[in-house]
Design a protein around this nucleic acid. Structure first.
Length: 593
RNA sequence: UGGGGAGUCGCCAAGUUGGUUAAGGCACUGGGUUUUGAUCCCAGCAUCCGAAGGUUCGAGUCCUUCCUCCUCAGCCA
């Protein structure tokens, strides 16, 4: 007998393997944590870190978060949650020209919406890189003092030329050998605003001949007179990402610094920088380590910041939260749910291989959680009239009304049933009647039988067309002993089962039917302009007839409209007693298509 | 043509120090249940791991060569 294979749990990946090994070997067990970020001395005075690991999610507040970020958020926060660690939520705000409070707010909202918190045991782990500017400045002086950095007077253009190419080594700057004293004084003058933007720059002194271009004396501090959303006008020099990020990680005692593949080439510099600062006694050890994974690519979607900004600014969509956009704000309005993203990230895994995930995977994840969590309701989206000619009328000729009972969730009887009123005139779906049925069609046809879901079996007796030749009204007669839920209701078996809403009781409202924003799997692939791949029919706004109970829906209430799909009451455009609905995703449809 | 990565079923993705029948999910195809053509259930689905050689009793896992794709030359992140 062979040992039973234990299936690898969904969500296992190479990064988790690294974390598990590090914990097992106690790589980070001696770390101390002073309760807040800081340098070596600061943490040395702290307690042994109660967090086994520390990860971080470090967005730059220069745009809205999108679905790709969800992968990173679940990875980082998930790792912390699963391994008794803490995940820091840190704004990487080192370039004031592109950043703003609006983005800080929207990003915070998105992270919260996904279900994560940066509060851990009474400690807030919300941080801003800009809060470390003093420490970063000190780190830069430390580098200078130890001969690891110098102030360059070359122009950006000169630097570019001197950097060499992918195949040719670069050349040393003529300013590379300035003395420590001169560098220090120049750097201080930079800080004190004595020099014009771009006239001087601080560079790491590594190797202009390195085959890794990132090691050819990278720029680490530039002069930039710009108002910062957090520090105001305090600084006129700002650190570059390459310099700032490793330091942020180290000050926060991050153990596993996880980023995307394009930063792989940066890792040698990450280690170099932290190594120099640690040997100067500035940073606590052990130092953080950077690991890279493949960023998310989704078919039928664009996730580049630039393209998303274009779509918004050029009004191809209504705003950052347009339900067709892959932003988290848009996904939320569309009716996507956080648990769906969790399922999705578990399902697609984490690796270093470039990959394109089929968009339907995401939709399936949403269907899966929505099927479980959404109550059912009835909606007729493309109505035509069905008249039950033999239905009872009162003496005054008005139709009688009777209650039908519809379960709120077929898989959860404990959620009970609701009343749906039935009367003589109903709205039914245009596509549920065919004058001349195609093969395999088993809904309403002339002389045919069909069940009105939760009501009676009816027989079609005729139909009328309007001037344009379209069917406008269908006539039928009901079979009295067939009401759903009554004894013997199944005496007559019919395959077709259609939904309906009483005309006299219907709630008429706006419903938006969304489809994918792009008609091509890879927008802009080849030499096409991605804007030409926009789907002109990405949204259809209709007036639908809904069952009366839907009038009471609150913003963000989600339902399955039976036989159609999942819908959400729009959180922005719904007003009291007048909710409007967005289609999140359709049901799977084995018929047609 | 320099450096750094990646290539396992249509789409993802596990594959311990080489050990012998190549996980799992999604999709797909059959069949069953069903008052949503939904859900659910059951079954099937890579003699093969980018290619070619080699080492070995034994290779997706080691060696050699080759091919393809991604990425780096911002005072962006």
């Amino acid at each position: 007998m062979s040992a039973e294979k234990t299936p690898i749990p969904l969500g296992s990946n190479f990064i988790r393997a690294i974390v598990e090994k590090d914990i097992e070997q106690g790589v980070y067990s001696t770390r101390k944590w002073a309760g807040s970020p800081g340098d070596a001395a600061h943490h040395a005075a702290g307690q042994p870190d109660p967090a086994k690991i520390r990860t971080r999610f470090p967005p730059e507040p220069n745009g809205y978060l999108h679905i790709g970020h969800a992968k990173s958020i679940f990875l980082n926060f998930g790792l912390a949650r699963d391994y008794a660690g803490v995940c820091h939520f840190r704004f990487d705000d080192t370039n004031p020209e592109k950043e703003s409070q609006e983005y800080v707010d929207s990003i915070s909202d998105a992270v919260k919406w996904l279900g994560f918190s940066w509060e851990n045991n009474g400690e807030s782990n919300l941080y801003f890189a800009s809060n470390y500017f003093d420490l970063m400045y000190r780190a830069a002086e430390s580098l200078i003092e130890n001969g690891h950095a110098y102030v360059d007077s070359q122009t950006a253009e000169e630097m570019r030329i001197m950097r060499g190419t992918l195949t040719e080594a670069g050349k040393n700057s003529p300013w590379r050998d300035r003395t420590v004293a001169e560098n220090l004084s120049l750097f201080r003058e930079m800080r004190d605003g004595k020099h014009a933007d771009g006239s001087l720059i601080l560079r790491a002194k590594i190797d202009m001949a390195s085959p890794n271009i990132n090691l050819r004396d990278p720029a680490i501090y530039r002069i930039k007179r710009a108002y910062h959303h957090n520090t105001g006008d305090k600084w006129c020099i700002y650190p570059m990402y390459t310099f700032a990020h490793p330091i942020e990680d180290a000050l926060e005692q991050i153990t596993h610094s996880i980023c995307t593949l394009e930063f792989e080439d940066q890792r040698p510099f990450y280690d170099w920088l932290l190594g120099r600062l640690a040997e100067a006694g500035m940073l606590a050890q052990p130092l953080p380590k950077q690991y890279e994974f493949a960023r998310l690519n989704l078919t039928y979607v664009v996730l580049s910041k630039r393209k998303l900004i274009d779509l918004v600014q050029d009004h191809h969509v209504s705003g950052w939260d347009d339900p067709r956009l892959p932003t988290l704000a848009g996904a939320r309005r569309r009716g996507y749910v956080a648990e769906g993203f969790k399922l999705f990230t578990d399902r697609i895994g984490v690796s270093k291989a470039d990959s394109w995930i089929e968009y339907t995977i995401l939709e399936d994840c949403m269907r899966e959680v929505l099927n479980e969590s959404s109550e059912r309701r009835i909606a007729v989206l493309d109505p035509i009239k069905l008249v039950i000619d033999n239905y009872a009328v009162d003496a005054d000729g008005k139709s009688q009304t009777e209650d039908c009972f519809a379960p709120n969730h077929p898989l959860k009887p404990e959620l009970g049933k609701r009343v749906v009123p039935l009367s003589r005139e109903l709205w039914i779906e245009r596509e549920d009647f065919m004058e001349t049925p195609s093969k395999g069609y088993f809904r309403l046809v002339p002389d045919g039988l069909v069940r009105l879901r939760y009501g009676y079996v009816v027989k079609c007796t005729g139909f009328e067309k309007d001037a344009a030749g379209n069917v406008s009204t269908v006539h039928c007669e009901y079979l009295p002993d067939t009401k759903s839920g009554t004894l013997g209701s199944d005496s007559i078996k019919v395959k077709g089962n259609i939904h309906w809403v009483s005309v006299a009781h219907a709630y008429e409202t706006e419903v938006r039917l969304y489809d994918r924003l792009f008609k091509e799997a890879h927008p802009g692939a080849g030499d096409r302009d991605y804007l030409n791949d926009i789907n002109p029919n990405s949204v259809t706004v209709i007036t639908a007839q809904l069952e009366p109970s839907l009038k009471d829906a609150n913003p963000e209430d989600r339902f399955q409209f039976e036989r159609h799909g999942y819908f959400v009451a729009d959180r922005k455009d719904s007003v009291a007693d007048k909710p409007v609905f967005n289609r999140t995703v359709t049901l799977r449809d084995a018929w047609q298509k």
